[in-house]
């Protein structure tokens, strides 16, 4: 403890404490609780049995009643710690409950039935992670399908985004042609048109193309991102034109120049766009909510929302599936945090 406190209280150059130092530590401490707490609570809760979840006040750790097999009884019986009339405490198994009395037996000596008032007993419980919360919905419900749909949408949309955006960015950064400024202007202008403004007409377009209630109807409207074109174009502008000229001297076709020179050199920018595209598409909600109507086409986000909006919310399933849906994002965050934060700081991308 003392090592920890000296570590925490050590000041660079032995400078004295200023009130802003205190404030900063309070900020960090409160931040840690407020930011991590809810997610921690979600994860812990997702491992609780329905009975444990319904308890109020809630327990922190997932607890489950301990049971014992007792000779002469088919079902395993729940164990209780009982305070007997003579003041002794014993662990007994409950056979059944009648009104305010419980009939209990000693697991060691199951012959004699002991009658105990129910307020004189507390369940014996142990920490147990209800992994069935994860296993069951994956088998009984369509969650696996939602997962597949989400992965399909995310992967396809990101691939197409990378290809068409990089091609467009290549054209806009390395070619002179009529109307280039106009195209740039139009793309710039549509940066201002967020999806929420055009959902209504987009619905008509997707309907006319027979894409309603299909995953392609979710994918295609999102792939020609103006943000991506801009990001890649700004990056490609820094690639020297001499490289292209040299390649043309070597009789490389324009297509070869694009994918053998431009794409490898733009890899850092492509990586940033790929990461963001994956996050955008994985988290998309409003548009899939509108386009997808049949349950088997739902993406994870729409499925989760539908599932949590049901009359009798099965929280033990909703929580576990929410945790599962975070896993890919958490992995991306762990491994690519550096790129993500750099991408945001440099471009203001979100």
């Amino acid at each position: 403890m003392s090592a920890l406190s000296t570590f925490l209280l050590r000041r660079r150059g032995g400078a004295s404490w200023h009130w802003t130092d205190v404030l900063a530590y309070i900020w960090l401490g409160v931040g840690l609780v407020l930011m991590f707490g809810p997610v921690l609570w979600l994860v812990v809760s997702s491992f609780k049995t329905p009975a444990n979840l319904a308890e109020f006040p809630p327990t922190f750790m997932p607890l489950d009643a301990q049971v014992a097999r007792v000779q002469g009884y088919e079902q395993p019986l729940p164990l209780f710690r009982v305070t007997l009339e003579d003041g002794n405490e014993r662990v007994l198994a409950q056979v059944r409950r009648v009104g305010i009395m419980a009939q209990m037996v000693d697991p060691e000596n199951p012959g004699a039935v002991i009658r105990v008032p129910i307020d004189k007993r507390v369940p014996v419980r142990q920490v147990k992670f209800a992994t069935e919360n994860y296993a069951e919905p994956l088998q009984q419900f369509d969650f696996l399908r939602y997962f597949q749909n989400s992965i399909f949408v995310t992967v396809m949309a990101t691939l197409i985004t990378l290809v068409v955006n990089s091609m467009a960015a290549f054209a806009l950064s390395k070619y002179e042609f009529k109307g280039r400024t106009a195209v740039l202007g139009i793309i710039l202008a549509t940066l201002m048109v967020p999806l929420s403004v055009i959902v209504v007409p987009l619905y008509l377009v997707v309907n006319s193309l027979n894409l309603f209630d299909t995953l392609w109807g979710v994918i295609l409207p999102t792939v020609a991102t103006p943000t991506g074109v801009f990001l890649l174009r700004q990056y490609m502008l820094t690639i020297p034109d001499e490289l292209l000229d040299a390649a043309r001297m070597d009789k490389a076709s324009e297509w070869q120049i694009y994918w053998r020179i431009i794409l490898p050199l733009a890899a850092p920018a492509l990586a940033v766009l790929a990461i963001f595209s994956v996050m955008w598409r994985w988290n998309d909600f409003l548009w899939p909510l509108i386009v997808l109507s049949r349950k088997e086409h739902y993406t994870l986000q729409v499925g989760l929302n539908a599932f949590s909006g049901e009359l009798n919310v099965q929280w033990h399933y909703v929580l576990s599936m929410t945790v599962l849906s975070i896993v890919p994002v958490a992995l991306i965050f762990l491994f690519l945090q550096r790129y993500i934060t750099a991408g945001i700081a440099n471009t203001g991308l979100k």
């Binding site: 290809v163 068409v164 955006n165 091609m167 467009a168 290549f170 054209a171 806009l172 390395k174 070619y175 002179e176 042609f177 280039r180 195209v183 793309i187 549509t190 987009l202 377009v205 193309l209 295609l220 409207p221 792939v223 020609a224 103006p226 074109v229 324009e254 694009y258």
Partner: peptide, 15 residues
């Protein structure tokens, strides 16, 4: 240039 721009602009125009 226009060829490279075409796929993106097509999708962009439609959607």
């Amino acid at each position: 240039g226009a060829v490279f721009l075409a796929p993106n602009m097509l999708i962009f125009s439609v959607f």
